[in-house]
Design a protein around this nucleic acid. Structure first.
Lengths: 211, 211, 211, 211
DNA sequence: CATGAATGAGGTTTCATTCAT
DNA sequence: TATGAATGAAACCTCATTCAT
């Protein structure tokens, strides 16, 4: 399901009746539940439909194929996280650099944690499903938000470095992925958050000076 | 005829064993090629066998099932990377902290890059295949090697922090994954390597003093 | 108010009926268009309804099932052709045999050609849909018309031969089917028409003498 | 199954083991039986496999998809008929025109009748399956054979006319199709054969002189 | 009457795995 | 030991038809 089928990912039908909207929502949630409880390779369209309490046919009225369904789930999740980070960036404008990073990291980690199960489950399917593309877009949005924020940082001479931001993003991503895949405890996650802040602060300070 | 004698007498494998080793190697390589050219979901045991120039039956004589094959491929790859890092750690003992990190990061990145295609391809299948377990072991080995190394760092008061090392590992992992999935150019990879060194150095310095 | 009065009073249909007739017509045309553009296996009731600009539900109010729809389309088409031939037969009464055949063949070919696309498309579905039955009736009507016509042919001793007429009919049918399936050019179709006339004339002459 | 899939019609695997050849043969025959007993729309790959006494998987080892299977069946049948006609043409060289036509028509009709059930059943599926292409090739072969034969006809001035031959072919085809679809009795078929001979003889005589 | 969401049986196809040769 | 034909469960997806709104 990976390679060629990068087309036809758009939802098939826009619900016009109220019933339809509820159905789509149910399918959506069912997909996540199946992913969590059964795992990626047991996630079949039939099972999702069953869990959603509809027939397969209904599922296929809204998603032209399995991939498009997973794509939608993935996009929805990443979208929420991304939005949270964007908001944090907006809020942190004009604050000191350390504070900025603190808030952004917090926002990102919290968003991930708040649906830790979903995040974790989605790592399984991101590879198929064209997750790379979704991820790329999400990363771009996040980066732009951070660039804007850093532009307002007091006492920064050099302009914010796109490259450094990307490094930071993927570093944070790696740490969170690892943490979620290990199903770290809340306590561990708190400590990880602190360290992520340290990691990013020290890196950004160095990177922005050197640039 | 003790075991050690046997070992001593048979540094070279018998013809039969040699053929077997060659076959396994061929299957191995074929699996990677199929993964690269066809994608994870088109990787079937039959296709791998075909590409390796053997029959499916033969493949199943060396690997009891598909998962074990992919597991072996994954393990082999990670093993090589891990070994490279361990060697770098051993070499860097007693050097200054910054130097240590420089060498370890270099070793890791170089090992990944040298088989960039394989690394990249394997991300697709790691989720299935029990890749998590393999990865965990690899991370453990690497961490131990780094702990031993850091123990010899001059002018470090606090003992090396296991937690911080893990953070660093996953951060590096995240950056490399992102770089490989984007099929970054050699030039980009060089710059990434530099930044990874900066990232880790600044983090470790902070972490070790704070600890 | 007798039936005939009713008929006399309602040459025009009521608004409701008029709308219904238009709907049926639209569905009809849509079915043919779908057949032509998408092929027999992509012809679904939903697609036909969409193309006709109505909902599936509406379609099912006019046709109890898919087969009845296709049957109706087929019948309509064949009916038109048959009627054209009947008219030609009526017109050709009392003319010389050669002239008769000329006119009938002309009428048949022209009728087919005038909706060549439809004819061609319908060959695809005739097999299902009970097309055989429709075809049989059409052939019967045509045959009777020809028998009546031939009865009036001057200088014919033997009565017209039912068997020979059927042979002629199926021969013409075969030639036209082949011509339409090959999407022959108008020029080619003209030549085919000439040859069909020759074919039938020479055959009928022989057959009627021998009989 | 009509439109786009005109590719991948070639058999998938050439049997190398004896067992395999038998399997292919069984599948082949089963397809025809299912077609005859159940009809075209109940012909599913599963049913064919069942009837052949093998599993679906096996069927798909030899035919990449359903269409290719039907294609093969169709091709095989038409091939036999065509070969029979070619042989008749070769045998009839240098004989008088009337005799030539007699023999060719006989050969064609006999070949069709000898597997009347199959012929009849195949009309149902020819439309899908790319039957048109197969039919075209068959018609070409037949036409060439007839041209060569007619070249040797004694006392013929004008060269044989390709166009006329095609007309004759499709006329015969139409008559036979009609006869087979009506499941005509052997007696009726004999009479049809006679009339076909008359039809073709009279037409060819006229056509060749006029040409 | 029209709508279109829902249904679900059933079709096609794949692929990990086995086992007779 | 190597082979590759055979297996069949199970996946994805379609579409004729119904019925509440």
């Amino acid at each position: 399901m990976t390679a060629s089928t990068l087309n036809a990912l758009e939802p098939r039908k826009t619900p016009v009746q109220a019933r339809a909207a509820a159905t789509v929502e149910a399918i959506f949630e069912a997909a996540i539940q199946v992913l969590l409880t059964q795992g990626a390779d047991r996630l079949t369209t039939t099972r999702v439909a069953d869990r959603a309490g509809v027939s397969v046919g209904t599922l296929y009225q809204y998603f032209p194929n399995k991939q498009s369904l997973m794509y939608a789930v993935f996009e929805d999740h990443l979208g929420k996280v991304t939005t949270a980070v964007e908001r944090a960036c907006a809020d942190a404008c004009h604050k000191p650099l350390a504070e900025m990073i603190h808030q952004v990291v917090d926002a990102f980690v919290d968003a991930k944690i708040s649906r830790a199960d979903v995040s974790s489950a989605l790592y399984q399917v991101a590879a198929d499903v064209g997750g790379a593309a979704v991820l790329k877009r999400s990363i771009q949005r996040t980066r732009r938000a951070m660039e804007s924020m850093l532009d307002t940082a007091p006492g920064i001479v050099s302009p914010p470095d796109r490259f450094a931001i990307e490094i930071m993003q993927s570093a944070i991503g790696g740490v969170m992925r690892s943490a979620l895949e290990q199903r770290s405890s809340p306590a561990a996650l708190r400590k990880i958050k602190q360290h992520l802040v340290i990691l990013c602060q020290s890196y950004m300070q160095t990177a922005l000076t050197q640039n």
